[in-house]
Amino acid sequence: MASQGTKRSYEQMETDGERQNATEIRASVGKMIDGIGRFYIQMCTELKLSDYEGRLIQNSLTIERMVLSAFDERRNKYLEEHPSAGKDPKKTGGPIYKRVDRKWMRELVLYDKEEIRRIWRQANNGDDATAGLTHMMIWHSNLNDTTYQRTRALVRTGMDPRMCSLMQGSTLPRRSGAAGAAVKGVGTMVMELIRMIKRGINDRNFWRGENGRKTRSAYERMCNILKGKFQTAAQRAMMDQVRESRNPGNAEIEDLIFLARSALILRGSVAHKSCLPACVYGPAVASGYDFEKEGYSLVGIDPFKLLQNSQVYSLIRPNENPAHKSQLVWMACNSAAFEDLRVLSFIRGTKVSPRGKLSTRGVQIASNENMDAMESSTLELRSRYWAIRTRSGGNTNQQRASAGQISVQPAFSVQRNLPFDKPTIMAAFTGNTEGRTSDMRAEIIRMMEGAKPEEMSFQGRGVFELSDERAANPIVPSFDMSNEGSYFFGDNAEEYDN
């Protein structure tokens, strides 16, 4: 993207840094990872977990959730003011799984939030270390993106479920800051804005008074975040219109849905970061690795190297396929839920299948599930090659597409044709070009129609051997075009429920 120079890199967003050079960025990201790792080690000690239990991804998720809940100030305040039966607002906890007599047992633990905050700050040299908290939120978000298709949420806001490739980060909490905003897809931002506008339509006082002023500035800020994701002048001009509207209503909703559809071809720039579970960072720190000293990046080879040398386990339900569970977590670790499966298959070195073909449910185990038949197995999170994460949407291309997802959002900077089903997408653009945004709409449609099938995206960008740390010898991959490109292809993934 041309304006790259004016933006802070995501590592800076990730670490609240002012302008830093590459070495400083690597050190501050490393410091953040160190903090998460030290916190995780301490929690495993508190909970008396064995090494194996500490490497269980379900335990990692519970521990991450506990610290996120302990620092969720708004919710904590709300819980104190609106006490609900049987919930102690000062405590947080969740299921911890232990191996007892050759069987997995679930144990519900409860801790004072104050105590968890103390352990977290102690692991982070006394700081609140917001960057580390956001990092864990993005890992949870990436896992949700890989596990669930947001059909219901899309339909509720009037969008087409086939636009799911635009929904990265749709389950990120509001408090995820600049680093969170960077990884949100165009569809996620559109959905947040539509929800806001709908509230304004239904509630006369939404934009009024002292609160209304705050609401208005939040609305304009979200519009600017979305505008910054678009790469064409016409899309940005249309966002200006939406932002400046005196009284946002149905016309703005129409414009936003139009823009979301246009992003299936004229893709937005959305950041991709490899955020790993805390149970990967903990053992690495415990083994003596100093992330701050060595430096770390979320968008280069580092996460690949770390996963190459990590042992992570997962509980497996009786009829689940461990290899499929591994694929789910591998995609989440690489922030690749909406990437082209052919690119992923090449990088991973084994075939990556669409969601609907995987015999696996989510990673988390519900409290009512029976533990008797639970097994555990090693997650295979290694890769054959590594590639640089991208934040450009890439230019655009036609490809055989599917009944489910009709476009992709690249996660890796790797040369390819970008699949999208042009006739299906263009069919949504018939007729409606009147109104105050008509010239911009016409211009956007013209650009979409001009998108050429034979153009290559990320020209000359390749993948790298894991021994090639400096990215000196790019390998331009070859793809098996007979395979499906979309992950949520004609899909039956479970729906995400809060």
Score class of each variant (00 low, 15 high):
residue 278 A to W: 07
residue 246 R to H: 14
residue 411 A to Y: 00
residue 297 S to Q: 03
residue 153 A to V: 09
residue 291 F to T: 01
residue 338 F to W: 10
residue 496 Y to F: 15
residue 89 P to M: 04
residue 398 Q to W: 05
residue 361 R to A: 03
residue 77 K to V: 07
residue 93 G to Q: 13
residue 394 G to D: 09
residue 421 D to F: 04
residue 486 S to D: 03
residue 335 S to H: 05
residue 283 P to N: 06
residue 152 R to A: 04
residue 227 K to I: 11
residue 110 L to C: 08
residue 229 K to M: 07
residue 388 I to M: 00
residue 68 L to E: 07
residue 20 Q to C: 02
residue 91 K to P: 04
residue 209 G to F: 12
residue 33 I to W: 02
residue 14 E to N: 13
residue 314 S to H: 04
residue 243 R to C: 03
residue 156 R to T: 09
residue 220 E to C: 04
residue 283 P to Y: 04
residue 424 T to F: 02
residue 477 P to G: 00
residue 471 A to K: 01
residue 72 D to L: 06
residue 303 P to K: 08
residue 420 F to H: 14
residue 296 Y to V: 03
residue 180 G to C: 03
residue 298 L to F: 12
residue 107 E to P: 06
residue 424 T to M: 11
residue 243 R to Y: 06
residue 132 G to W: 05
residue 248 P to L: 08
residue 360 T to N: 07
residue 117 R to S: 13
residue 124 N to T: 03
residue 200 G to S: 08
residue 282 G to E: 07
residue 122 Q to K: 04
residue 303 P to Q: 07
residue 286 A to K: 05
residue 213 R to I: 08
residue 222 M to A: 15
residue 65 R to T: 10
residue 210 E to V: 02
residue 182 A to I: 02
residue 384 R to D: 00
residue 222 M to R: 00
residue 21 N to K: 15
residue 110 L to Y: 05
residue 313 Y to V: 05
residue 100 V to F: 06
residue 166 L to S: 13
residue 226 L to P: 09
residue 432 N to M: 12
residue 9 S to P: 00
residue 176 S to I: 10
residue 120 W to N: 12
residue 57 I to T: 08
residue 355 R to T: 10
residue 182 A to P: 03
residue 277 P to F: 05
residue 5 G to S: 15
residue 396 T to F: 12
residue 78 Y to V: 11
residue 318 P to N: 03
residue 272 H to E: 09
residue 13 M to Q: 03
residue 328 L to C: 02
residue 303 P to R: 05
residue 495 E to C: 03
residue 470 R to C: 02
residue 308 Q to M: 09
residue 153 A to D: 05
residue 442 A to T: 15
residue 93 G to F: 09
residue 26 R to T: 05
residue 464 F to K: 00
residue 403 A to V: 06
residue 305 K to Y: 11
residue 211 N to C: 12
residue 327 Q to V: 10
residue 197 I to N: 07
residue 492 N to V: 04
residue 56 L to Y: 06
residue 482 S to C: 05
residue 393 G to W: 08
residue 50 S to C: 07
residue 246 R to D: 02
residue 164 C to W: 02
residue 211 N to L: 15
residue 130 T to N: 08
residue 184 K to A: 10
residue 73 E to S: 10
residue 428 A to T: 15
residue 3 S to C: 00
residue 441 R to K: 09
